[in-house]
Amino acid sequence: MTDWSSRVQEISGVNPRKCMKCGKCTAACPAYDQMEYHPHQFVDMVQTGRVEELMASKGIYTCLSCFACVERCPRNVQPSSIIEAVRLAVIRRQGGNHRKPDEIPALLNEELPQQAITSALRKYSKGG
């Protein structure tokens, strides 16, 4: 059985024990309403070994990677790296891609910059 908690800590390089549970990450998060679990819960649940619940959540694809939680965290915990690691833990699994590359064209429009497409491929699929 995979020890997801250790795996996520390894991928992210984050030590969730540095967290003092102030909730400033969640207070700063602009995607709060789009996520079932919020930045402070990611940190807490990785620490307490509840990673699979996080992996099943859709919110891992709506984290904007805006780094507001990283910048404002008083303890330098870097919640966004934890969220990213959970997302990677999912998409690196066999068939774990959130979006297959051939699904992407349907999401595009004329004006969308390339940057967005590459970003989405990277965020939603393995080795995108």
Partner: peptide, 24 residues
């Protein structure tokens, strides 16, 4: 904690977390 304060329209829009209430 408060995460952001945005002055707008004569108010200070405070965005904060309520950890025990589970809401922003």
């Amino acid at each position: 904690m408060v995460g952001k304060v945005t002055p707008q329209d004569g108010k200070l829009k405070v965005q904060a977390s309520d950890l025990l209430g589970g809401r922003q």
